[in-house]
Design a protein around this nucleic acid. Structure first.
Length: 766
DNA sequence: TGGAATGATGTTTTT
DNA sequence: CATCATTCCA
C-alpha cells in the first residue's frame, strides 16, 4: 500500500476506498487534494486503466496540478491519460466528438459572456423590446439560470412558475428572447458556457447508446469541490455514474460560494439519497493553519444555520493573533498593507510569493497595485481583465474562430472590418437584415448568391467576397496544419500584425507583444501531444476549445516570486503563509447585494471563512472608513464579520476600533445592526452603514465631506447651504424621493433654481 | 466610412 | 471613474 503512505487514518481510509459510491466531507486545509490524488494513484496501481478515470475539478489549474502530483507518484505517462479537467472543458471535448447528434458542427464555437450578451441585445432589438426594461445583462442571467437548471427555452415558456415570475417583474417576453437567443446560437454553430453542460445533458438524455458508451468508458468518476456544482453538473454525474456507482465526490459545505451561479449545497444531501450505500469519510484535521486561525474561522462559520456538523481542529501551534487594521481611506489601506508586507518580508525573511491580498471585488485591486508598485514589491493580479480578454487577443482569436467555424456571427462581426477594409456599418446592417430574413448566419449570406441583398452595391459586395475568400483560404489548412502554423499565417495575412506594428506608443507595442505571446503559447500547445490521440496534429480547433475555457488564473505563474492579488472566489483552493483580507466593510463585504436573505448572508459568511482559512501562519483584516466607489467618496462601517470573530483571536487596532473615539465600534454597530429578514426581498432594505449624526461629533466623520450620494442624504436637508462644482453656492429648498434617488431642489444665485439628483450632483455642504 | 467627442450606464463573485 | 455606445463631423 505504498500509494497511501504518509496519509493520516481518515485520509488513508478514503484514499484506499476502491469500489462503490463515496463522499469525502473535508474541512478547509484537511488534505482533500491529497486524498484525491492518492486515491487515483492507488486505483492505477491496482490496475485501473487511466483512460477510464474521469476526474472533474473546478479550475484548469487545479486539474493540471493534480495531474502533476499523480504523475509524480505513478509516472507521467499514466497520469497523462486520465480524463481530468473542468466540467466545461471535459464535456466540450465530448460534445465535439458527438456534435452531429445535436446538429452542431464539430468545430462549434464557444461563445463567451460578451458574445452571449451581444446576441441577446440583438434579439431584444429584433423583437422591438425596450432594452431599459429588458436589460441584456439580467436577461442573460435569467437564461443562464434556466440552463443551469436544465430548463430549455420551450420548457421555460411553458413553466407557469417562471412565466409568473417574469410577468410579476413586468418582463413577460423573456421566454421569447430565450427562444430567439437559442435559435441564433444554433444558426451560428455556437454554444455558450451553460450550453456545454446543458447539451451534454441532452446528449445523455436523448441518446441511450451514448449514455451507455460513456457509462462504460468512465468506470471511475471523481468530483472535486462538489459543493459548488449546479444542477446541470449534478445530473451529468448522476447519469454517468448510474451504471457502476463508482462515484467519489469531495467537498466542504462550509466553502460553498457559488450559489449565484446555480451551485446548490443540496447536491451533497442528494448524493446520499441517490446512493444509499455511499460511504462518508470526514476529514477534520487541518494541516494548513495555526490554531488561532482555525479556531477563529470556526467561531465565524458556527453562526451559519445551514451546515453539516463538523469539528475542524489542528495540531499546529497557536501562532499569532489576527491583526485588525482600520484605515482612513482605500488608499490608506493600500499603503498599510504594502508597508506591512515590506516589514514582514524583512522581519520574517519571507518571500513575496508568500503573501496574498484577498478582496471581495476586482475593483478593489487598484489601491494595492499602486502602493506595491511604489515600493517595488512584485505582485500579480489574478482575474480582472485576463490576457484572453484583451482586445488584440480577442481579435486574433475571432479570426481563428471564424476559420474553424465561419458561421460564427460574433466572430464575423468582430473582424470583418478589422483591420479596416472598407466594410462599414451600412454594409453590415444590410448583411444583418439579409441574415435575419433567411434565418441564416452572416457567412451564409456571403457565400450564397441567392441570398445577396439587393441593396448591396458592387464595391461593398466585392470587398465582402474578398474577405470570404481569405477566410476560406485559411480554412483549407485547418485539419492539416498545426495550431501554431495556421495561427501565425492568419496573424500575418490578415494584416493584423502589421496593423498593430504601426502603433509605436507603449500601449501599442505592448499589444503587439501580447499577440506574440499568444502565438508563442500556440507553439507550445502545438508541440504537446494529445493523450487521447497521440499521433494527430494539434489543430487550431483543438486550441480554440482550450482557449475559450481558459481563465487568467490558468496562465502559468512559473516560479514567479510575487505577491498575489485576487478575489476570494479566485483564492479558493489556494493557501498562503500571510493573508490580508481587505475591504471588510458593510455593504462591500458582506456585499450590498447579499443582504436580503439569510441564505445570501450565509454565503458571504462562508466566503469570509474561505478567505480566513487560506492563511497558514498569519491573517490580517482591514477596512477603510472611506472609499471611492463609482467615483464617489463613500463612508463605511466595519464589516459585521470582524465582530463575529471571537475577540480572543484578534489584535484590535492600536486605535481600538471598539473603544476609542472617533470611532466607537459598539455604538456604531448597535445603531444599524438589524436582524436579518429571513426570506424574500423587502423592497428597499433599510440601509445599514449610516452613521447617526449625533455620534459623528466634531470628529473624523464630519471632515469627510459628503459627496451627495443618496446614502448620505441624511446630512443634506432643506435650508442647508451647499456648493456645486458648476453652479457655485446655493441653498437647498426641498428634498423628495427615496434613497438612492433623492432629488433636491436647490436655488443658486448664479444659475437659478435647479433640480438635482443627489446621487450624481456633487454637493458640498457649507 | 472612419475617427473623435460626447453622453449614458453600470460593479459581486466565474466557467 | 471607466467603459461603452451613440452621435457628430470631416
Amino acid at each position: 500500500m505504498q500509494m497511501l503512505d504518509g496519509l493520516n487514518g481518515a485520509q488513508k481510509a478514503a484514499a484506499g476506498h476502491l469500489e462503490g459510491p463515496m463522499m469525502v466531507v473535508a474541512g478547509a486545509g484537511s488534505g482533500k487534494t491529497r486524498v484525491l490524488t492518492h486515491r487515483i494513484a492507488h486505483l492505477i496501481d491496482q490496475g485501473v486503466d487511466p483512460f477510464s478515470i474521469l476526474s472533474l475539478t473546478f479550475t484548469n489549474k487545479a486539474a493540471r496540478e493534480m495531474k502533476d502530483r499523480i504523475g509524480r507518484i505513478v509516472g507521467g505517462a499514466e497520469a497523462r491519460n486520465i480524463w481530468m479537467g473542468t466540467f466545461h472543458s471535459v464535456f466540450a471535448r465530448i460534445l465535439r466528438i458527438e456534435s452531429e447528434r445535436i446538429n452542431y458542427p464539430s468545430n462549434f464555437t464557444i461563445y463567451d459572456t460578451q458574445d452571449s450578451r451581444s446576441v441577446i441585445k440583438d434579439v431584444i432589438k429584433g423583437l422591438g423590446l425596450d432594452d431599459k426594461l429588458y436589460k441584456p445583462n439580467s436577461i442573460h442571467g435569467r437564461i443562464s439560470g434556466a440552463k443551469n437548471n436544465l430548463i430549455g427555452a420551450a420548457d421555460y415558456a411553458r413553466n407557469p412558475d417562471i412565466i409568473g415570475e417574469d410577468q410579476q417583474a413586468g418582463r413577460p417576453r423573456i421566454a421569447e428572447i430565450y427562444a430567439g437567443y437559442d435559435a441564433r446560437l444554433q444558426r451560428s454553430g455556437a454554444m455558450d458556457f451553460d450550453d456545454l453542460l446543458f447539451k451534454t445533458n441532452v446528449l445523455l438524455r436523448d441518446f441511450p447508446d451514448l449514455l451507455h458508451k460513456y457509462q462504460q468508458k468512465f468506470a471511475f468518476i471523481l468530483v472535486d469541490e462538489y459543493q459548488d456544482t449546479n444542477f446541470a453538473q449534478y445530473m451529468i454525474i448522476r447519469q454517468l455514474g448510474a451504471a457502476r456507482e463508482n462515484v467519489c465526490v469531495v467537498g466542504d459545505d462550509a466553502q460553498s460560494i457559488y450559489s449565484f451561479r446555480g451551485a446548490n449545497i443540496q447536491n451533497i444531501l442528494n448524493f446520499q439519497r441517490d446512493y444509499p450505500d455511499c460511504v462518508v469519510y470526514k476529514l477534520e484535521q487541518n494541516y494548513r493553519s495555526t490554531k488561532n486561525i482555525v479556531e477563529a474561522a470556526n467561531t465565524v462559520i458556527a453562526k451559519n444555520q445551514d451546515q453539516i456538523q463538523k469539528d475542524v481542529w489542528t495540531g499546529n501551534d497557536d501562532g499569532e493573533k489576527i491583526d485588525v487594521h482600520r484605515a482612513l481611506s482605500d488608499n490608506d489601506e493600500g499603503s498599510f498593507v504594502a508597508d506591512a508586507i515590506l516589514t514582514t518580508r524583512s522581519r520574517a525573511q519571507a518571500e513575496s510569493k508568500e503573501f496574498a491580498i484577498l478582496y471581495r471585488t476586482n475593483a478593489q485591486s487598484r489601491a494595492f497595485e499602486e502602493q506595491l508598485r511604489k515600493r517595488n514589491v512584485p505582485y500579480r493580479i489574478y482575474g480582472g481583465l485576463s490576457f484572453y480578454q484583451r482586445k488584440e487577443i480577442k481579435d486574433l482569436i475571432a479570426y481563428f474562430r471564424l476559420v474553424a467555424n465561419p458561421t460564427d456571427d460574433e466572430g464575423f462581426k468582430r473582424v470583418v472590418n478589422y483591420p479596416a477594409r472598407g466594410i462599414g456599418k451600412t454594409t453590415m446592417d444590410r448583411m444583418t437584415v439579409a441574415a435575419a430574413q433567411h434565418e441564416c448566419a452572416l457567412w451564409d449570406v456571403l457565400r450564397d448568391p441567392m441570398r445577396k441583398p439587393n441593396d448591396l452595391k458592387g464595391a461593398a459586395w466585392g470587398k465582402l467576397q474578398d474577405f470570404g475568400t481569405m477566410i476560406e483560404g485559411f480554412a483549407t489548412q485547418l485539419n492539416t496544419a498545426s495550431a501554431f502554423d495556421i495561427g501565425h499565417h492568419i496573424a500575418q495575412h490578415t494584416g493584423l500584425l502589421r496593423e498593430l506594428h504601426k502603433d509605436k506608443t507603449p500601449e501599442g507595442v505592448a499589444r503587439y507583444e501580447n499577440v506574440e505571446e499568444l502565438l508563442a503559447g500556440m507553439k507550445e500547445f502545438s508541440e504537446q501531444e494529445d493523450p487521447a490521440n497521440p499521433d494527430a496534429v494539434r489543430t487550431l480547433a483543438d486550441f480554440l476549445i482550450d482557449v475559450a475555457l481558459l481563465t487568467d488564473a490558468d496562465q502559468d505563474d512559473g516560479d514567479d516570486n510575487k505577491v498575489s492579488l485576487m478575489t476570494i472566489h479566485a483564492a479558493k483552493g489556494l493557501e498562503f503563509p500571510y493573508v490580508y483580507i481587505v475591504g471588510l466593510e458593510e455593504n462591500l463585504f458582506p456585499s450590498q447585494m447579499a443582504l436580503n436573505t439569510r441564505e445570501e448572508l450565509e454565503e458571504e459568511r462562508r466566503l469570509f471563512y474561505v478567505a480566513l482559512t487560506r492563511a497558514e501562519r498569519k491573517a490580517t483584516l482591514s477596512y477603510a472608513l472611506t472609499r471611492y466607489r463609482w467615483g464617489q467618496l463613500m463612508q463605511n462601517e466595519p464589516s459585521r464579520f470582524i465582530e463575529e470573530v471571537d475577540e480572543q483571536y484578534l489584535n484590535l487596532p492600536v486605535v481600538d476600533a471598539r473603544r476609542s473615539e472617533p470611532f466607537d465600534f459598539n455604538s456604531a454597530r448597535s445603531s444599524f445592526y438589524k436582524p436579518m429578514p429571513s426570506a424574500k426581498k423587502s423592497g428597499t432594505p433599510p440601509r445599514p452603514g449610516m452613521r447617526k449624526v449625533s455620534d459623528a461629533g466634531a470628529s473624523s466623520a464630519a471632515q469627510v465631506e459628503t459627496q451627495g450620494t443618496g446614502d448620505r442624504a441624511g446630512q443634506i436637508e432643506a435650508g442647508v447651504e451647499v456648493k456645486h462644482a458648476r453652479f457655485g453656492k446655493g441653498k437647498v429648498l426641498k428634498l423628495e424621493g427615496d434613497p438612492p434617488n433623492v432629488k433636491a431642489t436647490v436655488f443658486f444665485p448664479s444659475a437659478g433654481q435647479k433640480q438635482l439628483l443627489l446621487k450624481f450632483a456633487k454637493l458640498e455642504i457649507l
